[in-house]
Design a protein around this nucleic acid. Structure first.
Lengths: 148, 148
DNA sequence: CACAAATAAATCGCACACAAATAAATTAAC
DNA sequence: GTTAATTTATTTGTGTGCGATTTATTTGTG
């Protein structure tokens, strides 16, 4: 919260701007991702695996800032949907390795359409967008540093 | 999503910056709000009612961009905690009016400490913060307009 | 007045998030 | 080399979010 004494309720709080904008993104994604049979968090997992296949749960969690208690059930759903496999690492049986199936890899093609639609709605020039993203990432990093 | 062809996974996506920054805020708030016995969404409801007491569920939902299926159970918990009352509007029995109890009003004093802690972590000058908030709010409004 | 349409909440089902506790495997210490 | 500490993932329980449906009340139309 940022302005203790204003009279605008939640509207003046940066945390709420982020909270509501993030939900607005999810709402915009929903009908697009429905066509791929994915939820928004599932889509983030797929993006991460399209970028680097064969991550374990820990690495994926570090990339998405999510913990295994969130990811385990989500990954099971992606597995049931036939998009990924979950296998123990023979070198270290504690780790579960995540690999795209053929079907999971194929889905990346359809995802390009999704990104295009979202880009239109965001309606920001490339450099304005980079600046905004960098500002928000910097903020997130400061918040996470405090939360330890 | 913003950059289809980069090689950075989720890290290059504005939606993910918002998503992860919003969660980081929640994590920072958690230990502070634990002392008040509130979750972050419950805190948003209290802020809205501190700003304007006596809203109905619909109005509150418009302010927070949340719908009654989310709010009803949350409001019941605040009611059980003794922070608010839920009464039907005699003039229109469809509406449920939300009023702070004495205990609920009293909690606002402790919330000032929370805001102070958060403000420190955000570490932005007032005008930089206003600009950022306005940018994100503008983005949210564009996304919501597309989502209809 | 009667009765269909609209509105406000609540209910139900599913999928996150995350703290806390547990289980299994590896590494460290001695 | 056996035991303790650490690491990785799963399980459990609570609280959101939200689509879809349902219930109750009010408004609109003839």
């Amino acid at each position: 919260m940022t302005k203790p004494d204003d009279h605008r309720g939640v509207a003046g709080m940066l945390c709420f701007s982020l909270y509501s904008a993030s939900h607005a993104f999810t709402q915009l994604y929903r009908p697009l991702l429905d066509k791929l049979g994915l939820t928004y968090p599932q889509y983030l997992v797929m993006v991460s695996l399209w970028n680097r296949d064969g991550q374990n749960v820990k690495e994926l969690g570090n990339n998405l800032f999510l913990d295994s208690s969130t990811l385990t059930p989500l990954l099971k759903r992606l597995n049931v949907a036939g998009l990924i496999t979950r296998t123990r690492n023979p070198q270290d049986e504690r780790e579960v390795l995540l690999h795209l199936t053929e079907k999971g890899r194929a889905l990346q093609g359809q995802a390009d359409d999704v990104m295009h639609c979202i880009g239109d709605a965001v309606a920001l020039e490339a450099d304005a967008l980079d600046t905004l993203r960098a500002t928000i990432d910097g903020l997130r990093n400061r918040l996470q540093a405090r939360a330890r």
